[in-house]
């Protein structure tokens, strides 16, 4: 079953004759429960693609359908709620709030939605990510790898339809990168989450189920690794 589908997605920055085609007709299908790595050099358009998938930016043409919903038709406030309930984000620079504790950071998306926290699920996530003894700490007292683990937990807590990770290991050394990616992959499988990760690191992409290579705003190669 496809949880995400784009057809002929284009994004053009600027106007002719100076237009830059960041995305040039991307048609992509992402299967429920899979772990997809989008690989490409910087400037290939992979970040733009991820922003489109998450409804952070509006495409110039084409469509994005997430979990049966067409994103282009949604208004601003609807899109905000959509993102809150359906999409988990993991960023390169973690984007944790420094004045909240680790626990508060993780449950923030659930609280923003005015819902109760599924304590059992929370404990499970914290256990798998090894965060149980750090819940009362502030994020800036943690190492980079630990901060990214907090961000992973925050992405998982709402049980989103899809988790989008934008260079999740960009700020980490190679050893921690491997660990974080392994963890991302393992938690994705454990909690049956669909993940899309963008990276420029080929070596990191090998843990994914599928690698999609983007060059000049087009899909250059797409293959299943399993």
């Amino acid at each position: 079953m496809n949880i995400l589908q784009t057809s002929n997605l284009t994004k053009v920055y600027g106007e002719e004759p100076f237009a830059v085609r960041a995305l040039d007709g991307i048609t992509l299908e992402i299967e429920q429960g899979s772990f997809t790595a989008i690989v490409g050099t910087s400037g290939s358009g992979k970040s733009t693609l991820l922003h489109m998938l998450g409804g952070l930016d509006t495409p110039t043409g084409g469509s994005v359908v997430v979990d049966g919903q067409e994103l282009c038709g949604l208004g601003r406030s609807e899109l905000t709620i959509f993102r809150r309930r359906k999409i988990g984000f993991i960023f390169q620079n973690y984007n944790l709030l420094p004045n909240l504790t680790v626990y508060d950071n993780i449950v923030l998306p659930v609280e923003l939605d005015g819902r109760r926290i599924d304590r059992q699920y929370f404990d499970e996530i914290a256990g798998v990510l090894g965060l149980e003894d750090k819940l009362k700490r502030r994020p800036n007292k943690l190492s980079g790898g630990q901060q990214q683990r907090v961000a992973i937990a925050r992405a998982l807590i709402t049980k989103p339809a899809i988790i989008l990770a934008d260079e999740p290991t960009g700020n980490l050394d190679s050893r921690t990168s491997q660990e974080v990616i392994g963890l991302l992959c393992a938690t994705g499988k454990k909690f049956h989450q669909t993940m899309v990760m963008i990276t420029h690191n080929e070596k990191i992409a090998q843990v994914a189920d599928r690698a999609v290579r983007i060059e000049d705003g087009r899909i250059a190669e797409s293959r299943w690794l399993l």
Binding site: G68, Q69, S77, E78, D113
Partner: peptide, 13 residues
């Protein structure tokens, strides 16, 4: 039907 999607109401939730 998508009527109840993405609203900040209890029913939508």
């Amino acid at each position: 039907d998508g009527i109840q999607l993405n609203k900040d109401t209890l029913t939508s939730k």
